[in-house]
């Protein structure tokens, strides 16, 4: 057979073999067989002696062309095989990205503390100090300093847990006011404080009563603090907590430690003031009590009430949480049911 014919056949057969190689091992075998030192092309080169000298050059060129072709094809196939291998490996590594993640437990803030922290941040921004007093309070600080002497009828209004004749579980955070007033040095600037904390009343627990709850006391005293300042501050609190579109109203009220005393209502969230069962058809919901510090409270703490005056307010944090989040049973705050607590995570800001 003519060498050229042989070369033609080898080219065809070689390409077929390269293409048929299923893996790199087989491809290597084919490479050795075709272009290896003892491969088919080498064999053809060895057979050059049989070719007429004037054609050797042409045949040699053809052999080189076939070698180049083979090498090129081998490289391509090697690349393809490698790609296929990677693809295969990646396919093997494939995961279902829609399966859920592996989760550690997720923390959450208690709803009453959500309200507390929110208000603390608001007041700190306004220059208030956060102050905490004792929960086991003396009758002296809880009542007498707050203008509630022993026989004051308002003491019946709040049933108190007494420990002994002098010590009690505070029924209001107002005692913090007295303690701070006694200590404050007005030459160092005005007094602005909020006092958050637990308070206790001898109430049987039910949907709307709790023997323990959280209050925040606020107090601002200086030479020029007016009831208009109180009004502005209370409106800011109400709008901060319940939304800028809430209407507010102040009503005269009575607390022994403030005079004048007021309560603030906000327009009902449920009916927007039209009247519904939640607001007892009044269109208003009571949210807090406040007033101008009673001169007796100032004098009891050794402050000259003819010079200094100010306002105080008391915020019921549980009540705020109830109103803001639509909770219908105050006991839900104290049973620590994880299903209940988990829902407030998104409220954190």
């Amino acid at each position: 057979m003519d060498l050229l014919e042989k070369l033609d056949q080898l080219r065809a057969r070689g390409l077929e073999k390269i293409n048929a190689a299923a893996d790199t091992q087989k491809l290597n075998d084919v490479r050795v067989e075709l272009v290896g030192k003892k491969g088919a092309l080498t064999e053809i080169l060895h057979a050059m002696r049989e070719v007429a000298p004037e054609r050797r050059r042409q045949v040699g060129q053809l052999v080189n062309e076939v070698r180049d072709l083979f090498n090129e094809q081998l490289a391509q196939t090697r690349h393809d095989l490698a790609q296929a291998l990677i693809a295969q490996k990646l396919e093997a590594e494939k995961i279902d990205v829609t399966l859920p993640g592996k989760r550690l437990s997720l923390g959450a803030k208690h709803p009453v503390y959500l309200i507390l922290d929110d208000l603390e941040a608001l007041f700190i921004g306004l220059g208030y100090q956060v102050v905490q007093g004792p929960e086991i309070e003396t009758d002296h600080y809880c009542f007498e300093m707050m203008n509630l002497p022993k026989d004051h009828p308002a003491r019946d209004m709040q049933e108190t847990f007494y420990i002994d004749n002098e010590n009690l579980l505070r029924s209001q955070t107002s005692g913090d006011q007295a303690r701070v007033l006694e200590k404050h040095d007005f030459s160092q600037g005005p007094l602005k404080m909020v006092g958050p904390g637990k308070v206790y009343r001898r109430d049987d627990d039910d949907a709307t009563h709790s023997h323990q709850f959280m209050q925040m006391e606020g107090l601002v005293v200086d030479r020029n603090v007016s009831m208009s300042d109180l009004k502005g501050t209370l409106e800011m609190i109400a709008k901060h907590l319940f939304g800028a579109d809430r209407k507010t109203r102040l009503r005269p009220s009575y607390f022994p430690f403030t005079e004048p005393s007021v309560e603030m209502d906000v327009s009902c969230f449920n009916c927007d003031g039209k009247g519904c069962s939640i607001c007892k058809e009044t269109g208003w919901i009571e949210v807090l009590g406040a007033g101008m510090v009673h001169p007796n409270v100032l004098e009891n703490a050794g402050i000259d009430a003819s010079i200094y005056g100010g306002f105080a307010f008391g915020l019921g944090l549980d009540r705020f949480a109830i109103l803001k989040y639509g909770v219908d049973d105050i006991r839900d705050f104290y049973t620590n049911d994880v299903r209940f607590l988990a829902q407030f995570r998104q409220e954190e800001k």
């Binding site: 005005p190 602005k192 020029n224 009831m227 208009s228 009004k231 109203r249 005269p252 005079e259």
Partner: peptide, 26 residues
């Protein structure tokens, strides 16, 4: 003060913020 304030109308009071020497909250 209370009698005057309430009859004048708490609705008619201005809403202001206390204008006091600066205090640092915290």
């Amino acid at each position: 003060v209370e009698e005057v304030g309430r009859l004048y109308g708490y609705d008619n009071l201005k809403s202001t913020q206390p204008l006091l020497a600066e205090t640092q909250g915290g």
